[in-house]
């Protein structure tokens, strides 16, 4: 499965459009991570635990999108977009969407 945020994949031709596919995850942080983050809120800087947590959830959303695309018989997802939003205190949603297509090497 090829993923791209461009509208085409170089060296290939789109032979079939299958429609939009999407994936999402809502993740909450846990208390252990919160204590460390509380310290960081005093001195500032990167919150490595949160960076990892969001990278993981983004991967999960992408996997869900890919599963949907695979079920449709696609071999690529194009024009992929990500969006992140804070849904409630302590929880964030990651949403990813794109267009499932079938591509063929030229």
């Amino acid at each position: 499965m090829q993923i791209s945020n461009l509208e085409s994949i170089p060296g290939t031709k789109i032979i079939k459009h299958l429609g939009m596919v999407q994936g999402n995850t809502v993740r909450a942080k846990h208390v252990g991570r919160d204590i460390l983050a509380g310290l960081k809120n005093i001195i500032g800087g990167e919150l490595h635990a949160y960076t990892e947590l969001l990278t993981e959830s983004r991967q999960q959303s992408t996997d869900r999108m890919i599963a949907q695309a695979t079920a449709m018989g696609a071999n690529a997802v194009l024009n992929v977009r990500f969006s992140t939003s804070s849904v409630s205190a302590g929880a964030s949603e990651i949403y990813v969407y794109g267009t499932a297509v079938v591509v063929e090497t030229e």
């Binding site: 090829q2 500032g44 919150l47 960076t51």
Partner: peptide
């Protein structure tokens, strides 16, 4: 002349310090 593509990304989470 470009014939290979690969999705790439990078992320960072930061917090604001008390003083700021």
């Amino acid at each position: 002349g470009m014939n290979r593509s690969q999705f790439v990304s990078g992320s960072v989470v930061i917090s604001i310090d008390y003083y700021k």
